[in-house]
Amino acid sequence: MGLLTPELLANIGKAAAPRTEVVTRRDIRKYAIATNQRQRKYLDGDEAPPLYHVALFWDVVELNELNPDGVSIDKLLPKFPLERAMAGGLNISYHSKIRPGDVLVGHRTLTDIYEKEGRSGPLIFYEVVLKVQREDGSPVITEKTTRLLR
C-alpha cells in the first residue's frame, strides 16, 4: 500500500467546468441505430434511450488532444502511478426523460480515489460523478463511474 500520496488525494473533489449540450433528434437516432435499438420511439428520435447520455457527455476533443492509442486525455484526472485501465462500471440513477430540444448541463466531479491490494499487486480505484441537470438545476441523471487501474 502507499501509492496514493497526499498530493494525489488532494484531487478528490475537483470539478470540471460544466458542459452544456443540446439534444437533437439526429443524435438520438444515430445512437439508437448504433446500439441496435428495437423501440421505434428511440429509432425515430422522439425520446433518448437510457444510456444515451454516455454519448452526449463523452468529451469532444481535438485530434491533438488524443494519446497515441486514440484515447482522450481526461483533464479532470491526475497522473496516477498505475496506468493500465482495467474494468470499469457505471451506476446510473434516472430522474427524468431526455427528449430532442432539451438543453442539458453536465457537472463532472472526481469524488474518490482509493487503493486496494489485488491478487497480482496494488490496484487504484477512482470515482467520477456526472450530474446531468436542466438549465433550472432540476436533475435528469446522476451517474457514478468507477474505474480500476493496475
Binding site: 437510457p50 474494468a87 470499469g88 462500471g89 457505471l90 451506476n91 440513477s93 434516472y94 468507477t146
Partner: peptide
C-alpha cells in the same frame, strides 16, 4: 420505469 441501472465491465 427504470430508476437505476448499474453494470461492471469485468
Amino acid at each position: 420505469v427504470l430508476l437505476n441501472l448499474e453494470y461492471s465491465n469485468r
